[in-house]
Structures are given as structure tokens and as C-alpha cells.
Amino acid sequence: MIPARLVLAVQDSRYVEPLLNYVHGSSYGSALQVTAFTRTDSFLRYMETGEVPNLVVGDTEMLECWHARGEVNVPWLHLSEGNTAISLMEDGKSTPKYQPLPQLLDVILSHCKRSGGTAEKLNAGNTPILGIVSPLGGSGKSTIAMNMAKQLGVLGLRVFYLNLETVNSSVLFPSGSVGMEGSFSRLLYDMKAAQEPISGSELSVTSYIIRHHGLKCDSFEPNFNVKEMAEMNREDTALLLNSLVSSNHYDVIVVDTEEYMGERMQAVLEQAGLLIWVLLDDLISVHKSGVWIDQLEQRYPALYESVRKRSTFIVNRFTGQLVNNFPRKDINIDGVLPYIPSWKQLHQEELLLSSPIYQREVLKLCQQLLEGSGIMAIQAGGGR
């Protein structure tokens, strides 16, 4: 994925250097290509002769000098201090100069996307659906799904995280939104109502979408009613997925599924453009994975052939060497994610989203999907 081009124009080198060091040492380095200036003359010369950036981020003095040169055709973001403001704010936006670096970089990425940067141009057709599936309970599927949603957002994509588990694991990670309690129950009602023959109405999900600040993407407020989720069938799931796709708000929809072949899982298998199968390298897990996929082939042979072409297999909790042979010849391991010993007796749920080692490997997986088999290149499955 090509990173967004950012010009940083700040006179204080004590501000610029720590920011650049953080970008280069974090996952933001893959999403942003930063050219920094602390001298006004060098900045102005670059803006006249250099490559046009997606966004200029600067302090008051630098931006005012730039604006004074004439027409400004590049989107910009003002780093404000206290009550200071520049004279031409109608063409740009402002954000505090001093704030936590991850928060500042998220603001910068969001402005890169709104200004017509790389991320907005990636989605040329239907929004791809990325299904995270596993034949095993406790395989770490939800941890992978949430970390992938977060890292795809860091890469500059507009991401929606959809959890279809009967017992929603993302409940452990509060979204930070307020006033949306019970909203998924109302959404389920709207799904059923939209399918009534006399309804004539289309399902709209916009009013139910929240911003999940921990995952850095959009989502729905989790549902706590297990019975309601159990009643969500294949048709409901297909309708919900199609509504998210047709909204045209997202570059990718990451779907976290159940670990058995229920109706919601079937809808995801039918509609996902890419399926990430999460496996474990131990004797019992390998056996169960083989049996589960055998059953899928026997019960739904046509669906299985389609699924096989859209599947990528990864081994989670990899310790350095694969010791088991998987029982099917059509299972080729495409990637691994590491075993994190500190997660064995986890008592702080936020650690699942903040392990530097795990985040680095998930980011690599996301980049491989973008550049290889390609989230952006995949087409819908049989149902869309």
C-alpha cells in the first residue's frame, strides 16, 4: 500500500524530531511518508518545486508564510497553541499541537483520507468483506479480528468491524461511545421488519454506527442478549452485510464469526471476498480443523469450492516451528502469528490490542493481504 504523503512544517526541531522518531518506530510509518521542515524558506521552496503532498501540517508561522505566497491548492491542518489562530482558517482545520502522539497521528490520517489521499482511491468497486473464521473455539480468532481492524485503520483504510458472535468478545473493549446501549437490539428489529413482504422499506444502518476509539474503526454497540443473537439467521446477516457494503463508507469490512457452521457463518462464507482461517498447531486442534472442513465439503460442496478459492490459512500462537501435518492437502499455511506468553493469564484486556510484537506481525499480515492476494483486489463471493 502506498502511504499518504505528508509535509510537516514546524519551526521547533524539539517538536519535530520526537514526532518523526515515533512515526518511524511505529505502525504509522507504513501509513505516512513524512517530509519535515523547520526552516520556512526550505518549506516554501519545496511547496513550489517538490512532489504535491496529500496534506500539509504546520504551525502558525509556517502556514501564514505559505498562504501569503498566493493560492493554496493543497489541504492543510493547523497545529494550534492555546487561542492562536491563523488568518485563513476557512480552507483548513485545526488540532492542538500538544496531544498524545497516537491521537495526533490518527487526526492526521483522518484528514489525509478526507482530502482525497491514497486510502480513498483504493476502493474502486464494492467494499470487500474480510471474514475471520475458525473451526476451533479459543483459537484467538477475535483477538486477530480486532487487531486486524485496528491495523488496517492505522494503514489509512476506512474500516468497519462487525462481530457476529453469539457472545460478543468485543464487549471487553469499551468503544467509548455513550447513549447507544441496546441499539443493536433495535437494529435486529429493523432487519426483520425490512424483510417483511409488506414493508417496502430498505435497511439503513447509519444511525446505529459508532466510532470504536480503542479499535480505531467504526462498529456497532455490542449486543448482550444471547437469545436475540441466536435468532439472527442467514438472511438477516446477508442483509446486514449488504447494507454496510452499499453505504459506500468503508474500504473494508472485517467480520468476526462464530466457530461453528451456523447460519451467520454460512452467510459470511458466501459473501466474504477473502476468508482468513485461524488454525492452531496442536494435535487435537489439527484433527478438529480437518473434520470441520471435511463436513463443510460434504454438506455444501458448491460453497466449499468457492470458499477454497477465497481462503488464506494462518497458524496462531506460533512458537517457531510447525510440528503437526494438517490432514488435508488443500490446506497450505500462508502465514503465522506469534505466541505471546504474557497473554496466558491475562487480567488486563487492553493488552490484547497493545502488544508491540503481535501488532507488528498483524500489520505484516495486513500488508501482505493488501499487496498480495489483495483485500482491495478481491471480488465478492457467491451471495453479493
Rank of each mutant, 00 (worst) to 15 (best):
E165M: 05
S183R: 10
G156I: 08
Y208N: 01
E202P: 06
Y161P: 08
G153T: 06
V154E: 06
A193Y: 06
D190G: 01
L172S: 14
S199P: 07
V178P: 00
D190Y: 07
K192S: 14
G176K: 08
S183P: 01
V154I: 15
G176Q: 10
F184W: 10
V159C: 13
Y161T: 00
L187K: 05
T166H: 01
S177R: 03
E181Y: 12
E202F: 08
L187A: 09
E196N: 07
N168I: 00
K192H: 10
T206H: 05
S183E: 02
S207H: 12
V205L: 05
M191S: 09
V171R: 13
S201N: 14
P174W: 08
E181K: 11
N168C: 14
K192I: 01
L203G: 01
S204P: 02
E196Q: 15
Y189E: 09
S183C: 03
S201V: 12
G153F: 05
I198N: 06
S204A: 10
K192N: 11
A193S: 14
S201L: 12
P174S: 08
L155F: 03
N168G: 06
E202K: 15
N163F: 08
M191V: 04
G176N: 09
F184A: 12
L157H: 14
R186V: 08
G153E: 02
L155Q: 08
I198K: 11
L155M: 12
R186D: 13
L187C: 02
L162N: 06
V171Q: 13
G176T: 11
V205I: 15
S201W: 00
R158Q: 14
V171H: 07
G156W: 09
L164W: 03
M180Y: 15
M191Q: 07
R186L: 15
V178E: 14
V159N: 11
F184H: 06
P197C: 09
P174H: 12
S169E: 03
R186T: 14
D190Q: 11
G200L: 03
V154G: 00
G156L: 03
L172Y: 14
A194S: 15
L162C: 01
L172E: 08
V171E: 12
V159K: 07
S175T: 15
A194W: 07
E165V: 05
Y189G: 00
G200F: 03
A194V: 12
F184I: 06
R158M: 05
G182H: 10
L162E: 09
N163T: 02
D190A: 13
D190V: 01
E165T: 09
E181V: 15
V178K: 06
V171N: 09
